[in-house]
Simulated assay, not measured.
Amino acid sequence: MNRIAVVTGASRLKGIGAAVCRELAKAGHPVFFTYWSPYDEEMPWGSVASEPQVLKEELEGFGVPVGLMELDLTSMEAADLLFRKVREQLGQPSILINNAAYSTKDDYSTITPEDLDKHYFVNIRATTLLSSRFAQQFTIGRAGRIVNLTSGQFQRPMPGELSYATTKGAIDAMTITLAAEVGKLGITVNAINPGPTDTGWMTEEIKSGLSEMFPSGRVGLPIDVARTIKFLVSEEAEWVTGQIIHSEGGFRR
C-alpha cells in the first residue's frame, strides 16, 4: 500500500528532509514536502532558490506523484493550509514527518522573548498542531504514522542553545502523550534523534573532531536517519509507538 507522506522542512538538497523524501519516494510513497526559504537565507548555509524544484523533479524520477509548498510554519493557519493543499493535490496523507526546525544560538545571558517565540512557534507549536490536525483528519483506520525529529536534549546538555534545547525537548513529551491518544485511530507516533548529522553545516574541522566520537569513525549522514524513518513509517513498524529513538551511530559524548 503506497501511502501519501508529508515531510516538512525539505528546502535543501543536503538536508535531512530531502533525504527522507528520497527514501520514501523510492519506497513508492507519494510525497508532499514543505520548505521556507527566508529561514535558510538567515542561516550560514544560505538558500538556493532552485533546490525545492530540483528535489521535486528528482522525486518524480522515482515514479511517484510529488507536491510541494512554501509554508511559514509560524503562521497560525499553517496546519490547515498544508493539509488542504495535500488533499487537493495528492489525497489524504497517512504519514507525517515533522522535520522542520528553527535553531539559533543563545544562552541565559542573551535569550530574548522574540527569539524564544520563534523557536517555540516552529519547533513545538507547529509540530503539535500539524500532528493534531493530521490525526483529526485521519480516517483510514490503520497504518497512520507520525515521526518527529528531536535532538537528544535529554541525552546531554546543550550550552549555547537554550531556546532550541527547551523547545525541541518538549517534542519528546508531546510524542509520548500523543501516541497514547491516537493509537486507537490506527496511528503510531515516534520521535527520532539522529545525533550529529552533516547536512552541509559542518566544517572539515568539526567533522574531524566529531568523527572520533563515533565507533565507525564518521559523522552521521542524512541518509542514516532517513533509512530509520523509512522503517518507522512502514507497516512492519506498527508495534513501535511512543518511543524516542536515539539513532546516533554509537555517538560517544
Rank of each mutant, 00 (worst) to 15 (best):
F231H: 05
L185T: 05
D224Q: 06
V233Y: 01
D172V: 15
P157K: 02
G186L: 10
I171T: 12
Y164E: 06
M202L: 14
G160F: 04
I192V: 15
N148F: 08
Q153V: 11
L232K: 01
M174A: 12
I171E: 09
W201D: 12
K184L: 11
T188V: 06
P196W: 15
M158A: 11
M158Q: 14
Y164V: 06
L178M: 15
V147N: 02
G195I: 03
P159Q: 03
I187N: 02
G195A: 02
N148D: 08
K230F: 03
T228M: 12
L221S: 11
F154P: 00
K207T: 14
G200I: 09
M213T: 15
P157F: 08
G169L: 11
L210D: 08
A143M: 12
E181R: 11
I146T: 10
P222K: 04
G183C: 06
M213Y: 14
G169S: 06
P196F: 14
A180L: 11
A170S: 15
T150G: 04
V182T: 08
N148K: 05
I171D: 07
D198E: 07
A165C: 01
E161W: 07
T167R: 03
G220S: 09
T188F: 07
A165T: 04
T166Q: 05
G209H: 13
L178K: 06
G209L: 11
A173K: 06
R145C: 08
R156C: 02
M158Y: 11
G200C: 02
V147T: 10
S216P: 03
R145E: 08
M213N: 15
T188L: 00
L210Y: 13
E181P: 04
A180D: 11
M174F: 15
I206N: 01
G152Y: 07
L232Y: 01
T150M: 11
V147M: 04
L232C: 02
T166F: 10
Y164L: 09
D172Y: 00
T167L: 04
Q153R: 03
W201S: 13
G220V: 13
P196T: 09
E212Q: 15
T188A: 02
P157N: 09
R227N: 12
